[in-house]
Nucleic acid binder design. Structure first.
Length: 204
DNA sequence: TCGACGATCATCT
DNA sequence: GATGATCGTCGAG
């Protein structure tokens, strides 16, 4: 598999946690107004589905907002958070389970100046400024609600083979921003490439 | 119909 | 460390 060919459907139809780890190092390739924006995924979080209180699929509840979560793997789940930012997920597993992987951070590979423009940075970019957080990443890559439900294998937006992280350089810890989720808040479902400067805060 | 809230971020102190 | 921005969605009424 080459760095720029889309990951096959079968890649996503595995356990959510497995996919979350395997997505580290892969590329998100975004075609936008003739430009090509690329980031390498350096941080992910697994959201397991109905048994996971932090998941939008908690309790198996299906609503208009989260319907995409229950599709079979290989589609994007994009939702608006705090009225201002989007979050980009890859839906995983066979379908009907509500399992997905949140893409929390990426390291810019190509199109940095366009990303900086989209992020409206007022100062020189420091590591993590462009895509070091789920909201930032979507802003930098122009990922919006209209991508919700779309396959991750289109020219407009795709996830490709990239430069996968070695298992030994993967670290894990509790997920960010889910303190309300009781026991699930402590589950080590956040994954990142060790010491990568573009990983979001708090650092793992 | 309405009130509460969130898988965040930038900008303060 | 604390706070305000900002709005679609959900579930209660």
């Amino acid at each position: 598999m080459s760095r720029f060919s889309p990951l096959p459907v079968a890649f996503y139809r595995r356990s959510c946690v497995e996919v979350a780890r395997d997505l580290l190092g892969r590329y998100i390739v975004r075609r936008l107004d003739g430009a090509r924006l690329i980031v390498r995924i350096v941080e992910t979080e697994a959201y397991l589905g109905e048994g996971d209180r932090a998941s939008h699929a908690w309790h198996g509840r299906v609503t208009r907002r989260n319907a995409t979560l229950f599709k079979p793997g290989d589609v994007a789940y994009v939702f608006l958070i705090y009225g201002m930012y989007n979050c980009f997920n890859a839906v995983t597993q066979a379908g009907g389970e509500g399992a997905a992987v949140l893409i929390r951070a990426g390291s810019p590979v190509a199109g940095e100046s366009e990303m900086a423009r989209r992020r409206a940075l007022r100062r020189e970019a420091r590591p993590g400024d462009l895509a070091g957080g789920p909201g930032k990443l979507c802003q930098a890559l122009g990922i919006e609600r209209r991508h919700d439900g779309g396959p991750l294998r289109r020219a407009e937006l795709r996830v490709t083979g990239g430069d996968p992280a070695a298992p030994g350089e993967i670290v894990s810890g509790p997920r960010v921003g889910v303190d309300y989720a009781g026991e699930a808040a402590g589950w080590p479902l956040r994954f990142a490439i060790r010491s990568d400067p573009h990983v979001s805060r708090p650092r793992l």
